[in-house]
Design a protein around this nucleic acid. Sequence first.
DNA 1: AATAAAATTTAGACAAATCTAAAAATAGGT
DNA 2: ACCTATTTTTAGATTTGTCTAAATTTTATT
Lengths: 231, 231
Amino acid sequence: MTNKNVILKKSFLMTRAEENYIKTIFHLGGHSAVPIATNAIAEQMETKPSSVTDMAKKLAEKGLVHYKRYQGVSLTDSGIKTALSIIRKHRLWEVFLVKKLDFTWDEVHEVAEQLEHIKSEKLIDKIDELLDFPKYDPHGDPIPSKDGKFMVRDKELLSDLDAGVSGVCVGVKDTSAPFLKFLDKNGIALGKTITILEKEDFDQSLHIKIETQELHISHQIASNLYVKKHD
Amino acid sequence: MTNKNVILKKSFLMTRAEENYIKTIFHLGGHSAVPIATNAIAEQMETKPSSVTDMAKKLAEKGLVHYKRYQGVSLTDSGIKTALSIIRKHRLWEVFLVKKLDFTWDEVHEVAEQLEHIKSEKLIDKIDELLDFPKYDPHGDPIPSKDGKFMVRDKELLSDLDAGVSGVCVGVKDTSAPFLKFLDKNGIALGKTITILEKEDFDQSLHIKIETQELHISHQIASNLYVKKHD
DNA sequence: AATAAAATTTAGACAAATCTAAAAATAGGT
DNA sequence: ACCTATTTTTAGATTTGTCTAAATTTTATT
Ligand SMILES: [Mn+2]
Ligand SMILES: [Mn+2]
Ligand SMILES: [Mn+2]
Ligand SMILES: [Mn+2]
Protein backbone atom coordinates (compact mmCIF):
# COMPACT_ATOMS: atom_id res chain seq x y z
CA MET A 1 0.00 0.00 0.00
CA THR A 2 1.33 3.41 -0.93
CA ASN A 3 1.94 6.14 1.61
CA LYS A 4 -0.77 8.26 -0.02
CA ASN A 5 -3.32 5.48 0.50
CA VAL A 6 -2.38 5.24 4.14
CA ILE A 7 -3.13 8.93 4.56
CA LEU A 8 -6.43 8.57 2.69
CA LYS A 9 -7.35 5.60 4.83
CA LYS A 10 -6.88 7.61 8.01
CA SER A 11 -9.42 10.25 7.02
CA PHE A 12 -11.85 7.97 5.22
CA LEU A 13 -11.80 5.00 7.54
CA MET A 14 -12.97 6.79 10.68
CA THR A 15 -15.76 5.04 12.53
CA ARG A 16 -18.75 6.96 13.81
CA ALA A 17 -17.59 6.46 17.41
CA GLU A 18 -14.13 7.80 16.61
CA GLU A 19 -15.59 10.85 14.90
CA ASN A 20 -17.83 11.56 17.88
CA TYR A 21 -14.91 11.40 20.30
CA ILE A 22 -12.80 13.74 18.15
CA LYS A 23 -15.66 16.22 17.90
CA THR A 24 -16.28 16.14 21.65
CA ILE A 25 -12.61 16.65 22.47
CA PHE A 26 -12.55 19.65 20.14
CA HIS A 27 -15.64 21.15 21.76
CA LEU A 28 -14.13 20.70 25.22
CA GLY A 29 -11.18 22.78 24.09
CA GLY A 30 -8.73 20.00 23.29
CA HIS A 31 -7.53 21.85 20.20
CA SER A 32 -5.30 24.04 22.35
CA ALA A 33 -2.28 22.63 24.18
CA VAL A 34 -4.35 22.12 27.34
CA PRO A 35 -5.25 18.45 27.61
CA ILE A 36 -8.82 17.36 28.35
CA ALA A 37 -9.56 15.07 31.29
CA THR A 38 -10.84 11.56 30.73
CA ASN A 39 -13.79 12.20 33.05
CA ALA A 40 -14.79 15.39 31.22
CA ILE A 41 -14.98 13.52 27.93
CA ALA A 42 -16.87 10.65 29.54
CA GLU A 43 -19.42 13.00 31.07
CA GLN A 44 -19.95 14.93 27.84
CA MET A 45 -20.39 11.74 25.81
CA GLU A 46 -22.52 10.04 28.45
CA THR A 47 -20.17 7.11 28.60
CA LYS A 48 -17.75 5.67 31.20
CA PRO A 49 -14.17 6.86 31.80
CA SER A 50 -12.84 3.39 31.03
CA SER A 51 -14.36 3.57 27.56
CA VAL A 52 -12.69 6.94 27.02
CA THR A 53 -9.31 5.50 27.98
CA ASP A 54 -9.71 2.71 25.43
CA MET A 55 -10.64 5.15 22.70
CA ALA A 56 -7.86 7.58 23.66
CA LYS A 57 -5.35 4.81 23.00
CA LYS A 58 -6.91 3.99 19.65
CA LEU A 59 -7.01 7.63 18.54
CA ALA A 60 -3.40 8.16 19.68
CA GLU A 61 -2.45 5.09 17.63
CA LYS A 62 -4.05 6.75 14.61
CA GLY A 63 -2.23 10.01 15.24
CA LEU A 64 -5.37 12.01 15.98
CA VAL A 65 -4.69 12.83 19.64
CA HIS A 66 -1.80 13.30 22.02
CA TYR A 67 -2.22 10.92 24.93
CA LYS A 68 -0.10 10.10 27.95
CA ARG A 69 -1.43 7.87 30.71
CA TYR A 70 -3.17 9.89 33.44
CA GLN A 71 -2.47 13.14 31.55
CA GLY A 72 -5.63 13.54 29.44
CA VAL A 73 -5.85 14.01 25.67
CA SER A 74 -5.54 16.87 23.22
CA LEU A 75 -5.96 16.87 19.46
CA THR A 76 -3.04 16.71 17.05
CA ASP A 77 -3.06 18.91 13.95
CA SER A 78 -4.56 15.98 12.10
CA GLY A 79 -7.19 15.59 14.83
CA ILE A 80 -8.09 19.28 14.64
CA LYS A 81 -8.49 19.04 10.87
CA THR A 82 -10.75 16.04 11.32
CA ALA A 83 -12.83 17.77 14.00
CA LEU A 84 -13.31 20.87 11.86
CA SER A 85 -14.42 18.75 8.93
CA ILE A 86 -17.08 17.04 11.04
CA ILE A 87 -18.23 20.33 12.58
CA ARG A 88 -18.42 21.86 9.09
CA LYS A 89 -20.68 19.05 7.96
CA HIS A 90 -22.84 19.25 11.09
CA ARG A 91 -23.43 22.98 10.76
CA LEU A 92 -23.98 22.98 7.01
CA TRP A 93 -26.61 20.26 7.38
CA GLU A 94 -28.28 22.33 10.10
CA VAL A 95 -28.49 25.30 7.75
CA PHE A 96 -29.82 23.06 5.00
CA LEU A 97 -32.55 21.67 7.22
CA VAL A 98 -33.69 25.16 8.27
CA LYS A 99 -33.34 26.97 4.95
CA LYS A 100 -34.45 24.27 2.52
CA LEU A 101 -36.69 21.96 4.54
CA ASP A 102 -38.35 24.35 6.99
CA PHE A 103 -37.02 22.67 10.11
CA THR A 104 -37.02 24.84 13.22
CA TRP A 105 -33.73 25.57 14.99
CA ASP A 106 -34.65 23.26 17.86
CA GLU A 107 -35.17 20.27 15.53
CA VAL A 108 -31.98 20.28 13.51
CA HIS A 109 -29.30 19.14 15.93
CA GLU A 110 -30.49 15.56 16.34
CA VAL A 111 -30.67 14.95 12.59
CA ALA A 112 -27.36 16.73 11.95
CA GLU A 113 -25.75 14.38 14.47
CA GLN A 114 -26.49 11.62 11.97
CA LEU A 115 -25.87 13.51 8.73
CA GLU A 116 -22.43 14.74 9.86
CA HIS A 117 -21.11 11.18 9.44
CA ILE A 118 -22.04 10.77 5.77
CA LYS A 119 -18.85 10.21 3.79
CA SER A 120 -18.87 12.21 0.57
CA GLU A 121 -16.79 15.28 -0.02
CA LYS A 122 -18.78 16.15 -3.12
CA LEU A 123 -22.05 15.96 -1.19
CA ILE A 124 -21.09 18.47 1.48
CA ASP A 125 -19.45 20.83 -1.01
CA LYS A 126 -22.61 20.82 -3.13
CA ILE A 127 -24.77 21.44 -0.06
CA ASP A 128 -22.46 24.35 0.79
CA GLU A 129 -22.92 25.72 -2.73
CA LEU A 130 -26.71 25.19 -2.68
CA LEU A 131 -26.85 27.26 0.52
CA ASP A 132 -24.66 29.96 -1.00
CA PHE A 133 -21.71 29.30 1.34
CA PRO A 134 -23.24 30.31 4.68
CA LYS A 135 -20.89 31.60 7.38
CA TYR A 136 -23.01 30.72 10.42
CA ASP A 137 -25.36 27.94 11.43
CA PRO A 138 -28.91 28.42 12.79
CA HIS A 139 -27.56 28.83 16.32
CA GLY A 140 -25.03 31.48 15.32
CA ASP A 141 -22.04 29.15 15.35
CA PRO A 142 -19.44 29.70 12.64
CA ILE A 143 -19.10 27.18 9.78
CA PRO A 144 -15.50 26.17 9.03
CA SER A 145 -14.54 26.43 5.37
CA LYS A 146 -13.23 23.46 3.40
CA ASP A 147 -9.69 24.32 4.52
CA GLY A 148 -10.67 24.60 8.18
CA LYS A 149 -10.85 28.37 8.64
CA PHE A 150 -13.80 30.16 10.17
CA MET A 151 -14.92 33.56 11.40
CA VAL A 152 -14.64 34.18 15.12
CA ARG A 153 -17.28 36.85 15.55
CA ASP A 154 -16.73 39.10 18.51
CA LYS A 155 -19.66 38.51 20.76
CA GLU A 156 -20.41 38.62 24.46
CA LEU A 157 -22.79 36.90 26.80
CA LEU A 158 -25.78 39.11 27.48
CA SER A 159 -25.23 38.42 31.19
CA ASP A 160 -21.77 40.05 31.01
CA LEU A 161 -23.09 43.40 29.75
CA ASP A 162 -24.19 46.43 31.77
CA ALA A 163 -27.49 48.25 31.87
CA GLY A 164 -27.94 50.66 28.98
CA VAL A 165 -25.88 48.57 26.57
CA SER A 166 -27.56 47.37 23.38
CA GLY A 167 -26.60 44.99 20.58
CA VAL A 168 -27.76 42.33 18.18
CA CYS A 169 -28.48 38.78 19.25
CA VAL A 170 -26.00 36.66 17.27
CA GLY A 171 -25.93 33.27 18.98
CA VAL A 172 -26.96 30.90 21.72
CA LYS A 173 -24.69 29.02 24.09
CA ASP A 174 -27.23 26.39 25.12
CA THR A 175 -28.57 24.80 21.94
CA SER A 176 -30.99 22.41 23.64
CA ALA A 177 -34.52 22.17 22.24
CA PRO A 178 -36.19 23.34 25.48
CA PHE A 179 -34.08 26.50 25.63
CA LEU A 180 -34.61 27.29 21.94
CA LYS A 181 -38.36 26.75 22.28
CA PHE A 182 -38.37 29.10 25.27
CA LEU A 183 -36.69 31.76 23.13
CA ASP A 184 -39.25 31.27 20.35
CA LYS A 185 -42.08 31.63 22.83
CA ASN A 186 -40.64 34.92 24.07
CA GLY A 187 -39.86 36.38 20.68
CA ILE A 188 -36.09 36.13 21.06
CA ALA A 189 -34.32 35.27 17.80
CA LEU A 190 -30.97 35.78 16.08
CA GLY A 191 -30.70 39.14 14.35
CA LYS A 192 -32.98 40.95 16.76
CA THR A 193 -31.78 44.01 18.66
CA ILE A 194 -31.60 43.72 22.44
CA THR A 195 -31.17 46.58 24.92
CA ILE A 196 -30.58 46.08 28.62
CA LEU A 197 -32.98 48.43 30.39
CA GLU A 198 -32.23 47.39 33.94
CA LYS A 199 -30.14 44.86 35.82
CA GLU A 200 -31.32 43.49 39.18
CA ASP A 201 -28.36 43.32 41.58
CA PHE A 202 -29.94 40.71 43.80
CA ASP A 203 -30.45 37.84 41.28
CA GLN A 204 -28.77 39.26 38.16
CA SER A 205 -32.06 39.10 36.28
CA LEU A 206 -32.50 41.53 33.39
CA HIS A 207 -35.20 43.82 32.16
CA ILE A 208 -34.61 44.01 28.42
CA LYS A 209 -36.14 45.49 25.30
CA ILE A 210 -36.10 43.16 22.30
CA GLU A 211 -37.01 45.13 19.18
CA THR A 212 -40.22 46.85 20.35
CA GLN A 213 -41.15 44.49 23.12
CA GLU A 214 -40.12 44.60 26.80
CA LEU A 215 -39.26 41.45 28.71
CA HIS A 216 -37.90 40.21 32.02
CA ILE A 217 -35.36 37.36 31.81
CA SER A 218 -33.42 35.43 34.44
CA HIS A 219 -29.63 35.33 34.70
CA GLN A 220 -29.74 31.75 33.45
CA ILE A 221 -31.34 32.87 30.20
CA ALA A 222 -29.05 35.86 29.76
CA SER A 223 -25.97 33.72 30.29
CA ASN A 224 -26.91 31.61 27.29
CA LEU A 225 -27.45 34.42 24.80
CA TYR A 226 -24.64 35.92 22.74
CA VAL A 227 -24.87 39.56 21.70
CA LYS A 228 -22.74 41.69 19.42
CA LYS A 229 -22.59 45.17 20.97
CA HIS A 230 -23.52 48.17 18.83
CA ASP A 231 -20.59 50.42 17.99
CA MET B 1 -42.56 -0.48 28.71
CA THR B 2 -45.85 0.00 26.88
CA ASN B 3 -46.89 -2.05 23.88
CA LYS B 4 -46.76 1.06 21.71
CA ASN B 5 -43.14 1.63 22.65
CA VAL B 6 -42.28 -1.93 21.75
CA ILE B 7 -43.69 -1.38 18.27
CA LEU B 8 -41.82 1.90 17.95
CA LYS B 9 -38.65 0.21 19.08
CA LYS B 10 -38.90 -2.35 16.30
CA SER B 11 -38.95 0.23 13.54
CA PHE B 12 -36.62 2.77 15.13
CA LEU B 13 -34.06 0.46 16.66
CA MET B 14 -32.94 -1.26 13.45
CA THR B 15 -29.19 -1.36 12.98
CA ARG B 16 -27.58 -0.53 9.67
CA ALA B 17 -26.65 -4.17 9.13
CA GLU B 18 -30.20 -5.33 9.77
CA GLU B 19 -31.58 -2.76 7.34
CA ASN B 20 -29.16 -3.85 4.65
CA TYR B 21 -30.14 -7.49 5.02
CA ILE B 22 -33.87 -6.65 4.84
CA LYS B 23 -33.32 -4.55 1.73
CA THR B 24 -31.27 -7.27 0.04
CA ILE B 25 -33.84 -9.96 0.80
CA PHE B 26 -36.54 -7.74 -0.70
CA HIS B 27 -34.50 -7.14 -3.87
CA LEU B 28 -33.90 -10.86 -4.25
CA GLY B 29 -37.65 -11.37 -4.28
CA GLY B 30 -38.14 -12.44 -0.68
CA HIS B 31 -41.35 -10.39 -0.45
CA SER B 32 -43.28 -13.13 -2.19
CA ALA B 33 -43.90 -16.51 -0.56
CA VAL B 34 -40.81 -17.97 -2.27
CA PRO B 35 -37.99 -18.10 0.27
CA ILE B 36 -34.52 -16.80 -0.61
CA ALA B 37 -31.48 -19.05 -0.22
CA THR B 38 -28.81 -18.27 2.34
CA ASN B 39 -26.12 -18.43 -0.32
CA ALA B 40 -27.95 -16.00 -2.59
CA ILE B 41 -28.12 -13.43 0.19
CA ALA B 42 -24.49 -14.01 1.11
CA GLU B 43 -23.35 -13.53 -2.47
CA GLN B 44 -25.40 -10.37 -2.97
CA MET B 45 -24.12 -8.86 0.27
CA GLU B 46 -20.55 -9.99 -0.27
CA THR B 47 -20.52 -11.79 3.05
CA LYS B 48 -20.39 -15.43 4.17
CA PRO B 49 -23.36 -17.81 4.41
CA SER B 50 -22.69 -18.35 8.11
CA SER B 51 -23.14 -14.64 8.73
CA VAL B 52 -26.44 -14.74 6.88
CA THR B 53 -27.66 -17.60 9.06
CA ASP B 54 -26.85 -15.63 12.21
CA MET B 55 -28.69 -12.58 10.94
CA ALA B 56 -31.65 -14.66 9.71
CA LYS B 57 -32.17 -15.86 13.26
CA LYS B 58 -31.99 -12.34 14.64
CA LEU B 59 -34.42 -10.96 12.05
CA ALA B 60 -36.83 -13.86 12.66
CA GLU B 61 -36.63 -13.09 16.38
CA LYS B 62 -37.68 -9.51 15.58
CA GLY B 63 -40.55 -10.69 13.38
CA LEU B 64 -39.12 -9.28 10.17
CA VAL B 65 -38.53 -12.56 8.30
CA HIS B 66 -39.89 -16.09 8.15
CA TYR B 67 -37.05 -18.51 8.76
CA LYS B 68 -36.84 -22.28 9.09
CA ARG B 69 -33.48 -24.03 9.24
CA TYR B 70 -32.20 -25.03 5.78
CA GLN B 71 -35.33 -23.50 4.16
CA GLY B 72 -34.20 -19.96 3.39
CA VAL B 73 -35.87 -16.70 4.43
CA SER B 74 -38.72 -14.53 3.22
CA LEU B 75 -39.98 -11.22 4.55
CA THR B 76 -42.98 -10.93 6.86
CA ASP B 77 -45.48 -8.11 6.29
CA SER B 78 -43.54 -6.10 8.81
CA GLY B 79 -40.30 -6.89 6.94
CA ILE B 80 -41.81 -5.80 3.64
CA LYS B 81 -42.94 -2.52 5.18
CA THR B 82 -39.45 -1.96 6.53
CA ALA B 83 -37.83 -2.77 3.18
CA LEU B 84 -40.12 -0.39 1.31
CA SER B 85 -39.35 2.37 3.76
CA ILE B 86 -35.60 1.95 3.22
CA ILE B 87 -35.99 1.72 -0.57
CA ARG B 88 -38.18 4.84 -0.50
CA LYS B 89 -35.43 6.73 1.31
CA HIS B 90 -32.71 5.42 -1.00
CA ARG B 91 -34.52 6.45 -4.16
CA LEU B 92 -35.68 9.84 -2.88
CA TRP B 93 -32.11 10.68 -1.89
CA GLU B 94 -30.95 9.65 -5.36
CA VAL B 95 -33.46 12.03 -6.93
CA PHE B 96 -32.38 14.77 -4.54
CA LEU B 97 -28.72 14.33 -5.44
CA VAL B 98 -29.45 14.52 -9.18
CA LYS B 99 -32.09 17.25 -9.18
CA LYS B 100 -30.79 19.54 -6.46
CA LEU B 101 -27.05 18.91 -6.30
CA ASP B 102 -26.19 18.11 -9.93
CA PHE B 103 -24.91 14.62 -9.26
CA THR B 104 -24.85 12.32 -12.29
CA TRP B 105 -26.89 9.10 -12.24
CA ASP B 106 -23.75 7.01 -11.89
CA GLU B 107 -22.64 8.86 -8.72
CA VAL B 108 -25.76 8.71 -6.58
CA HIS B 109 -26.02 5.09 -5.51
CA GLU B 110 -22.99 5.00 -3.23
CA VAL B 111 -24.05 8.12 -1.32
CA ALA B 112 -27.70 6.97 -1.15
CA GLU B 113 -26.48 3.72 0.43
CA GLN B 114 -25.41 5.87 3.38
CA LEU B 115 -28.26 8.39 3.40
CA GLU B 116 -30.95 5.68 3.36
CA HIS B 117 -30.07 4.86 6.99
CA ILE B 118 -30.69 8.35 8.41
CA LYS B 119 -33.48 8.10 10.98
CA SER B 120 -35.93 10.97 10.63
CA GLU B 121 -39.39 10.62 9.21
CA LYS B 122 -39.73 14.37 8.93
CA LEU B 123 -36.49 14.62 6.96
CA ILE B 124 -37.48 12.19 4.22
CA ASP B 125 -41.01 13.57 3.97
CA LYS B 126 -39.63 17.08 3.54
CA ILE B 127 -37.17 15.87 0.89
CA ASP B 128 -40.11 14.21 -0.87
CA GLU B 129 -42.01 17.51 -0.77
CA LEU B 130 -38.98 19.54 -1.93
CA LEU B 131 -38.72 17.26 -4.96
CA ASP B 132 -42.46 17.57 -5.65
CA PHE B 133 -43.21 13.93 -4.84
CA PRO B 134 -41.31 12.16 -7.63
CA LYS B 135 -42.60 8.79 -8.79
CA TYR B 136 -39.33 7.39 -10.18
CA ASP B 137 -35.66 7.58 -9.27
CA PRO B 138 -32.84 8.53 -11.69
CA HIS B 139 -32.59 4.91 -12.89
CA GLY B 140 -36.31 4.63 -13.60
CA ASP B 141 -37.10 2.63 -10.47
CA PRO B 142 -40.40 3.45 -8.75
CA ILE B 143 -40.39 5.30 -5.40
CA PRO B 144 -42.71 3.76 -2.80
CA SER B 145 -45.05 6.25 -1.15
CA LYS B 146 -45.13 6.76 2.61
CA ASP B 147 -47.68 3.96 2.91
CA GLY B 148 -45.61 1.55 0.82
CA LYS B 149 -47.45 1.70 -2.52
CA PHE B 150 -45.71 2.31 -5.82
CA MET B 151 -46.32 2.36 -9.56
CA VAL B 152 -45.36 -0.76 -11.46
CA ARG B 153 -44.81 0.70 -14.90
CA ASP B 154 -45.27 -1.76 -17.71
CA LYS B 155 -41.91 -2.00 -19.34
CA GLU B 156 -39.92 -4.61 -21.26
CA LEU B 157 -36.28 -5.36 -21.79
CA LEU B 158 -35.10 -3.98 -25.12
CA SER B 159 -33.57 -7.39 -25.82
CA ASP B 160 -37.04 -9.02 -25.67
CA LEU B 161 -38.52 -6.84 -28.43
CA ASP B 162 -38.62 -7.50 -32.18
CA ALA B 163 -37.26 -5.48 -35.06
CA GLY B 164 -39.48 -2.58 -36.04
CA VAL B 165 -40.78 -2.01 -32.52
CA SER B 166 -40.22 1.36 -30.91
CA GLY B 167 -40.69 2.83 -27.44
CA VAL B 168 -39.35 5.13 -24.76
CA CYS B 169 -36.38 4.22 -22.58
CA VAL B 170 -37.76 4.19 -19.04
CA GLY B 171 -35.20 2.35 -16.95
CA VAL B 172 -31.97 0.43 -16.51
CA LYS B 173 -31.56 -3.02 -15.01
CA ASP B 174 -27.83 -2.75 -14.34
CA THR B 175 -27.28 0.42 -12.28
CA SER B 176 -23.50 0.12 -12.03
CA ALA B 177 -21.43 3.21 -12.72
CA PRO B 178 -19.55 1.65 -15.68
CA PHE B 179 -22.79 0.71 -17.46
CA LEU B 180 -24.37 4.13 -16.83
CA LYS B 181 -21.25 5.90 -18.08
CA PHE B 182 -21.34 3.74 -21.20
CA LEU B 183 -24.93 4.86 -21.82
CA ASP B 184 -23.98 8.52 -21.34
CA LYS B 185 -21.13 8.14 -23.82
CA ASN B 186 -23.52 6.71 -26.42
CA GLY B 187 -26.30 9.23 -25.91
CA ILE B 188 -28.69 6.75 -24.30
CA ALA B 189 -30.81 8.30 -21.54
CA LEU B 190 -34.19 7.87 -19.88
CA GLY B 191 -37.02 9.52 -21.80
CA LYS B 192 -35.42 9.05 -25.21
CA THR B 193 -37.24 7.19 -27.99
CA ILE B 194 -35.64 3.98 -29.22
CA THR B 195 -36.54 2.07 -32.39
CA ILE B 196 -35.16 -1.36 -33.26
CA LEU B 197 -34.07 -1.15 -36.88
CA GLU B 198 -32.54 -4.59 -37.19
CA LYS B 199 -31.82 -7.60 -35.02
CA GLU B 200 -28.81 -9.82 -35.74
CA ASP B 201 -29.83 -13.48 -35.38
CA PHE B 202 -26.30 -14.69 -34.78
CA ASP B 203 -25.36 -12.72 -31.65
CA GLN B 204 -28.65 -10.96 -30.83
CA SER B 205 -26.99 -7.59 -31.27
CA LEU B 206 -29.25 -4.68 -32.27
CA HIS B 207 -29.13 -1.88 -34.75
CA ILE B 208 -31.20 0.86 -33.13
CA LYS B 209 -32.22 4.43 -33.70
CA ILE B 210 -32.17 6.58 -30.56
CA GLU B 211 -33.91 9.89 -31.26
CA THR B 212 -32.16 10.97 -34.49
CA GLN B 213 -28.98 8.95 -34.06
CA GLU B 214 -28.28 5.36 -35.23
CA LEU B 215 -26.32 2.94 -33.08
CA HIS B 216 -25.21 -0.68 -32.84
CA ILE B 217 -25.51 -2.29 -29.38
CA SER B 218 -24.71 -5.75 -28.06
CA HIS B 219 -27.24 -8.12 -26.54
CA GLN B 220 -25.64 -7.47 -23.15
CA ILE B 221 -26.47 -3.78 -23.38
CA ALA B 222 -29.99 -4.36 -24.70
CA SER B 223 -30.75 -6.80 -21.92
CA ASN B 224 -30.12 -4.07 -19.35
CA LEU B 225 -32.36 -1.39 -20.86
CA TYR B 226 -36.07 -1.12 -20.10
CA VAL B 227 -38.38 0.29 -22.73
CA LYS B 228 -42.07 1.20 -22.68
CA LYS B 229 -43.53 0.29 -26.08
CA HIS B 230 -45.44 2.91 -28.04
CA ASP B 231 -49.17 2.21 -28.34
C1' DA C 1 -31.76 -46.59 -2.08
C1' DA C 2 -27.15 -45.45 -1.52
C1' DT C 3 -23.75 -42.15 -2.26
C1' DA C 4 -21.66 -37.91 -3.69
C1' DA C 5 -22.13 -32.96 -4.08
C1' DA C 6 -23.90 -28.73 -2.63
C1' DA C 7 -26.04 -25.82 0.66
C1' DT C 8 -26.64 -24.59 5.26
C1' DT C 9 -25.81 -24.49 10.07
C1' DT C 10 -23.01 -24.86 14.25
C1' DA C 11 -18.98 -24.07 17.02
C1' DG C 12 -15.50 -21.28 18.18
C1' DA C 13 -12.75 -17.14 17.33
C1' DC C 14 -12.10 -12.12 16.57
C1' DA C 15 -12.52 -6.87 16.32
C1' DA C 16 -15.11 -2.81 17.83
C1' DA C 17 -17.21 -0.48 21.37
C1' DT C 18 -19.03 -0.68 25.47
C1' DC C 19 -19.60 -1.93 30.63
C1' DT C 20 -18.38 -3.19 35.89
C1' DA C 21 -15.20 -3.92 39.45
C1' DA C 22 -10.65 -3.66 41.09
C1' DA C 23 -6.03 -1.67 40.98
C1' DA C 24 -2.94 2.17 40.26
C1' DA C 25 -1.67 6.94 39.91
C1' DT C 26 -2.43 11.69 40.88
C1' DA C 27 -3.93 15.71 43.54
C1' DG C 28 -5.36 18.04 47.65
C1' DG C 29 -5.32 18.93 52.58
C1' DT C 30 -3.24 18.77 56.83
C1' DA D 1 5.67 14.41 53.89
C1' DC D 2 1.77 11.65 54.57
C1' DC D 3 -2.71 10.27 54.11
C1' DT D 4 -6.99 10.46 51.68
C1' DA D 5 -10.16 11.44 48.02
C1' DT D 6 -10.44 11.68 43.26
C1' DT D 7 -9.17 10.43 38.78
C1' DT D 8 -7.65 7.25 35.61
C1' DT D 9 -6.34 2.83 34.01
C1' DT D 10 -6.49 -2.21 33.77
C1' DA D 11 -8.70 -6.67 33.66
C1' DG D 12 -12.29 -9.24 32.33
C1' DA D 13 -17.03 -9.60 30.48
C1' DT D 14 -20.78 -8.40 26.94
C1' DT D 15 -23.00 -7.28 22.43
C1' DT D 16 -22.95 -6.92 17.45
C1' DG D 17 -21.41 -8.47 13.33
C1' DT D 18 -18.21 -10.86 11.17
C1' DC D 19 -15.04 -14.92 9.93
C1' DT D 20 -13.07 -20.07 9.30
C1' DA D 21 -13.49 -24.80 9.78
C1' DA D 22 -16.17 -28.65 10.86
C1' DA D 23 -20.62 -30.89 11.16
C1' DT D 24 -25.21 -31.44 9.42
C1' DT D 25 -28.96 -31.42 6.20
C1' DT D 26 -30.70 -31.27 1.67
C1' DT D 27 -30.37 -32.19 -3.24
C1' DA D 28 -28.72 -34.48 -7.17
C1' DT D 29 -26.73 -38.59 -9.39
C1' DT D 30 -25.95 -43.07 -10.09
MN1 LIG E 1 -25.89 21.03 16.50
MN1 LIG F 1 -25.68 24.39 15.61
MN1 LIG G 1 -29.32 2.92 -5.89
MN1 LIG H 1 -31.72 3.91 -8.18
